[in-house]
Design a protein around this nucleic acid. Structure first.
Lengths: 339, 339
DNA sequence: TTATTTACCGTAAACGATTTCGTAAACCTT
DNA sequence: AAGGTTTACGAAATCGTTTACGGTAAATAA
């Protein structure tokens, strides 16, 4: 197995210095076209690949390594985000290192510190519910390390981000239920402090208001965990009310699956007696019976775009980019009253 | 922000050479207890953290970096494996770099090459369906880089691995169906060349044979993709037969969800008219209605163990370790005929 | 007493690249 | 022709650590 070619090998072959070779390969200007061409040819012949480790040490920066921090890698949405990042990273010859915060902002900070001391080229992060910008991210700016927020954003700061349009997604979802003739539409939101939860709740309220419907406080319940169990529990609370809702819009598909279970156990038919709309378009949504109407979240595309933004920032060293992915409503069976 | 302490800072503080400091910190023997203690104290005081990049260059090996290669990060099982690896890695101060082969053995090789040229300390890999040991992994041995197979294994070679006991899992699943009184038990297997598929099929056949039941070829169908769609399609084929099965054991939960859809559309009741057992214990299984009886696959534990094995191999430089995780049957509702 | 080992530590050369600084030659400019 | 600028390149330092090698002083052996 032949050893990898180094700069000095190219230099020796051409009787020039490593400095010149380095300049040629890095597109510096202090070099003649002729020499550069010669170097490139020999480099190609020797199948030269720059040594990441050496570059890293010299530059005090890991060469072409992007750090991704996610709350949970085994959560469907985040795993698709990761998939998107990885595909773009691979194309651009970047290595991807991942960390899982487990929704723990302290651990998140730990991971960030690790990544930074490793000298990653950039960071793509989906913050935990509780992360404060000041505590966990403010110092990234000083360190001049490019970073892009994913999913959850900090609007008061000028940062790059990709997220989904939770507000409009929720608005469409509820509006759709109204058009289908549902009257008492409830909402299971996520507990406060989680931006995606409040945005979705806002969209819910606005849709009702715009249609001239009243927005009853007792028809809004909060879930801390956004799990199936919470969905089941809160639905049971709804149905112990004097006037239960005839539709429920849930903050995630997982929560919706809890609604399904309760409905099934109590012979409440979906969608004729109870309309249900979820959020995420996760694998669940087309597996539940009846199939769940939901709002799609383009995790993979978000991941790809996040990487692209990082790449741009790194190149131009100035811009910050934002994109809010429009959330499309995927109408399936769970909201088709007239079906 | 104070700059990170280096060896030379410690050396200066104690008026000794960096060599000595290095020796002290690396537990070499050419050093007195007194000096070592002093170094350790100062190192602690200055909050010294070794510079990964420098060590990497000198050793020509990335310092404490483990590479994980998976067929699909957004597949539930693999994402739990990743989760397990990451938790152990974090505890041991390892960085995790990930690559996704997308079930493409060529891309898998590419990723491996990337990882190796980066000098990862070890590799944990869940091979694609088609990966040949010779083509993709044989050279890892020569490179003396520790590696552990996950999920899919190569029994003819003496390698380390973690996997689940597909054979016994399937055996239990089918045996359970028999005990519940099902008579014509069908199987949707995965297409050939994928070891987990053939093991599960073997378990299926053996359970039937051991109970004195005949194993009909027409009751076994192959799926290339192991998806819901295939499950639906193949179930419809089963039910166009003169004597359709009264139970189906599927190679994955995903496939089982296709069975559910067909059954629901054709008013076939699960479990009274059709028993169903899946494999994986993925999120689906407790969300399907009725809840799916399935065989659990301990992804997270497998990931943790894989990392532990890597760690052991690296330390002792000799052993290889194997573990087959016993696959436990999780009995839920879809197989309870007498329910 | 002299020779040899042992314990401990330092010097300097790596690892493979980038970068600072210097300089010789070529090219203008007046 | 003198002086200035540009072009193209090389020597050497540098990044932070490990390690081969050598040396000194004390301990032990002969």
């Amino acid at each position: 197995m032949a050893k990898d070619a180094r700069l000095i090998d190219i230099a020796n072959a051409l009787n020039i210095s490593v400095t010149t070779v380095s300049r040629a390969l890095n597109d510096k200007d202090d070099i003649s076209q002729k020499t550069k061409a010669a170097v490139l040819e020999v480099a190609d012949m020797l199948d030269y690949k720059p040594n990441r480790l050496a570059i890293s040490l010299r530059k005090k920066k890991a060469f072409n390594v992007i750090g991704v921090v996610l709350p949970n890698v085994d959560h469907y949405f985040f795993s698709t985000v990761l998939k998107g990042v990885m595909s773009k990273a691979h194309l651009n010859n970047y290595l991807v290192i991942v960390g899982e915060s487990s929704q723990d902002d302290l651990k998140e900070k730990e991971i960030l510190d690790e990544f930074i001391s490793y000298g990653v080229s950039g960071i793509l992060i989906a913050p935990t519910k509780h992360s404060s910008f000041e505590a966990n991210f403010a110092y990234l700016k000083q360190k001049r390390i490019p970073y892009v927020f994913m999913d959850r954003t900090y609007d008061e700061h000028d940062t790059s981000y990709v997220r989904s349009d939770d507000y409009h997604g929720a608005y469409q979802a509820v509006n759709h239920l109204i058009e289908k003739g549902y009257q008492r539409i409830a909402h299971i939101k996520s507990s406060d402090g989680w931006s995606i939860g409040t945005e979705r709740a806002k969209g819910y309220r606005q849709a009702l208001t715009d249609s001239g419907l009243t927005c009853y406080d007792e028809l809004i319940k909060s879930s801390d965990t956004a799990t199936k169990e919470d969905g089941y529990q809160l639905t049971s609370e709804f149905f112990s009310m004097d006037a239960p809702p005839d539709a429920i819009f849930t903050v995630t598909d997982d929560v919706a699956s809890g609604v399904y279970e309760y409905a099934h156990q109590h012979q409440i038919d979906i969608p004729s007696q109870l309309g249900v709309v979820g959020f995420s378009n996760s694998v669940l949504s087309s597996i539940l019976i009846p199939k769940l109407t939901t709002v799609e979240q383009l995790g993979e595309q978000m991941g790809e775009t996040a990487f692209d933004y990082f790449f741009q920032i790194r190149k131009d060293k100035r811009h910050s980019f934002q994109k809010t992915f429009e959330s499309k409503l995927i109408v399936r069976e769970s909201s088709q009253r007239d079906k």
